[in-house]
């Protein structure tokens, strides 16, 4: 069984995995990081989005072995202690979540989107979240949250 060495949320981890093990399986099942969710099997819903080397990717569409040597950040690694990341705080303030299932992927996508776009418009946000499905919110408050979170991240 291949061994993968990763830095996950700042901590070095090592695990033996089958080649077919997806990064999301490694995170959820072997590392106990169940904040990253699986909402589909066709790589479309975005509930599993994490950052690999600073970029948002779908952890369900990346083999654990492919990520060997990478730095992975999951939703569990976003806040600093009890202090929420500005994007998390914005989701709370703007009621950008209901059932919470899409939320980790949504927040991770939003953080990466905001990092790469200095002046997000509503249209940018709507298009930028194309890869994240939410069934609860109609996206209205998610869009408000991301706009506010992006602004807060610049401060």
């Amino acid at each position: 069984m291949p061994t993968v060495n990763l830095t996950v949320n700042g901590k070095a981890v090592s695990a033996n995995v089958e080649a077919r093990t997806l990064l999301v399986n490694l995170l959820r099942e072997q590392l106990g990081l169940t904040g990253t969710h699986v909402g589909c099997d066709t790589s479309q819903c975005g509930a599993c989005v994490v950052h690999v080397d600073g970029k948002s990717v779908k952890a369900c569409t990346l083999l654990a072995v492919q990520a060997n040597g990478s730095k992975v950040t999951t939703i569990e690694g976003l806040a600093s202690g009890d202090k929420l990341h500005p994007m998390q705080e914005a989701f709370r303030e703007h009621h950008g979540l209901q059932c919470g299932f899409c939320t980790p992927g949504m927040v991770m996508s939003a953080v990466c989107l905001a990092q790469n776009h200095p002046n997000l418009t509503e249209k940018d946000v709507r298009e930028g979240l194309e890869g994240n499905l939410c069934r609860c919110t109609g996206y209205h408050n998610i869009v408000q949250a991301v706009l506010a979170g992006a602004q807060a991240m610049r401060r």
Partner: peptide
């Protein structure tokens, strides 16, 4: 052969492709 895997992995997840060897 696999580069980004963004098509190959979904196809393999659906068990529509079943390569014995993947060269990344």
């Amino acid at each position: 052969l696999m580069a980004g895997g963004q098509t190959l992995i979904p196809t393999m997840k659906q068990r529509l492709a079943s390569p014995g060897t993947v060269v990344d």
